[in-house]
Nucleic acid binder design. Structure first.
Lengths: 191, 191
DNA sequence: AAGAGTACTTAACCTAGATTAAGAAATTAT
DNA sequence: ATAATTTCTTAATCTAGGTTAAGTACTCTT
């Protein structure tokens, strides 16, 4: 299990005191599968780091169709960045897919931490930049690759997820219906 | 015309000396339309801020099909973030669409500025976060909206661009072929 | 002003993926 | 264990948007 301090240490070096301070501004909680941590229409006041388990963020279109924005497994961050930084109601849900342990940072605490440990500005800058790059790549993939190619990329990027989550979520992530995904999978198995 | 200092002032406050220092680490250049500032396969060593004019970033698929990632008009930043932060060759082109004036910051200078003016970590964090939110929204739009709806969103988001750039670039940005875009536009005009 | 390139349109035909519907398999709850 | 719910599969039919191709209208050069 990768701790949040190890995650931070990938990009910036905190002193033991700073580490202590950081942890004191976080809260670690266990959640059962199917728990909804955030619903569309609410203002996101927290960011989440996954110690163990799996979360996903998604929105719901026309009150029917879900679209998965992001999966977060062990060692990943997740949240509704739009709502979090704007303070406005968002349109994302954040759901626990597997019993999980999650580190929670409130916006208020994060703002304080930025004052007290300026190095964290750098850390979260780097985090945002990396996430931006990942989203840019996914966007371009959606414009230029077939569903099959996107699925292959998904498999190599999230090999551990494939066995663990309902495949309808994977279909949603790569941008096809569950029915088409099923057909495509059958086609791939024949090869 | 919005200057780069005004752009920074939207999120952090620099002293006059810091402003001076910042500007000393930048270079402002004029470019003619059609100039390529960065090609796929090169390592991006700079980030660009548009004083006036229009730039775009795009990639080329199978050596044939272009996909526009981003347009940058007056007051916008543009670059190949992947290549810039990884130091590896990227797959984006950055092209000048209209005679433009561009502020250039090298990675080296940006790193120095982070040391000398830590507030800039915050500025670029906020910039990356905002950009991330925009990309997340565009990604979800591509998953859930029709081409027509994406075009409408494009129009309200970039009203000034529509008259200024070849419409094939708009087609590429919203993710359809120029032929389909033309057909769709004709259909919209009938309404 | 003529020519060359680039951008746009139109139309016929095609296909990846959506929709609808029904049944089968796997989970979950009791 | 069994019922209830959720997930997955299969198949027929449909459609948004792609492809190909040809013609038209712009821009740029020179």
């Amino acid at each position: 299990m990768q701790s949040i301090l190890e995650n931070i240490a990938k990009h910036v070096t905190l002193t033991p005191e700073e580490q202590e301070l950081f942890l004191s501004k976080t809260e670690t909680k266990q959640f059962k599968a199917k728990t909804i941590l955030l619903s569309a229409g609410e203002v996101a006041t927290c960011t989440y780091f996954v110690n163990s388990g799996i979360l996903r963020s998604f929105n719901i279109n026309d009150n029917i169709i879900e679209h998965v924005l992001h999966f977060a497994c062990e060692g990943w961050w997740i949240g509704d960045m739009y709502s979090y930084i704007s303070g406005k109601p968002g349109n994302l849900f954040i759901e626990v897919l597997e019993d999980s342990e999650v580190v929670i940072i409130t916006k208020e605490n994060q703002q304080q931490l930025y004052q007290e440990i300026p190095k964290l500005e750098r850390f979260f800058r780097i985090l945002a930049e990396n996430s931006l790059v990942a989203h840019q790549e996914r966007l371009m993939d959606n414009l230029s690759l077939t569903a099959e190619e996107r699925f292959e990329k998904f498999c190599s990027k999230y090999p551990s997820l494939i066995q663990k989550i309902p495949q309808k979520h994977i279909a949603s992530y790569i941008g096809v219906t569950p029915e088409f995904f099923s057909k495509m999978k059958a086609r791939l198995l024949k090869k």
